[in-house]
Design a protein around this nucleic acid. Sequence first.
DNA 1: AGCAAGATTAGC
DNA 2: CTAATCTTGCTA
Length: 196
Amino acid sequence: MRLDKNFFQKNTKHLARDLLGTFLVHKTQEGTTVGKIVETEAYLFKNDPASHAARGKTKRNAPMFEAAGNVYVYFIYGVHYCFNIVSGKEHEGEAVLIRALEPIKGIELMQKRRGPSILPKELCNGPAKLVQAMGINKTHNQSSLLNGPLALHDKNSFSTGKSKINIVRTTRIGINLGAELPLRFYIQNSEFISKK
DNA sequence: AGCAAGATTAGC
DNA sequence: CTAATCTTGCTA
């Protein structure tokens, strides 16, 4: 079942935890891809120098200040895109970066997009990799997960064997400022999280 | 106007 | 370890 507004309208740190185990679903003309979220990072508005929203609203980060459940896609290093889910009770300027997925459906389509010889474990184990595998691009920026071709489904939507998960909390990856803040969350023992 | 750094990844 | 090479923010 597609998750609604109530799921997203909450404290960003809580959303980053609650997103683990849910399913990102993208329907396109090429086919449908589904990935289970196994790794996330929270980016806050206050006291978080690593966040794009740290210096206020700009043209680029404006989607972060819109409704919870919206999508924020940004271009980085002149090469890659990263995918975020906007959170917060109001338009707080906070979001959750999705860092890794476990491929569930459409693995052949993911390989078509990423490379035919790439193993399932390597298809979505990084923020820019999963964007490419899922067929997400700049056109999804500022769209909503509440409706449209890109959606988030609850934990019971697809059977993946394990029902109970343990969540590990650590510091975030790939940042210099705010590197000491424990805002990264992942599913313990998952084979699909990004490398450290 | 110029420049350095950035929520990354693939390939020497 | 480094190239790839876009956007932002700071300095002049």
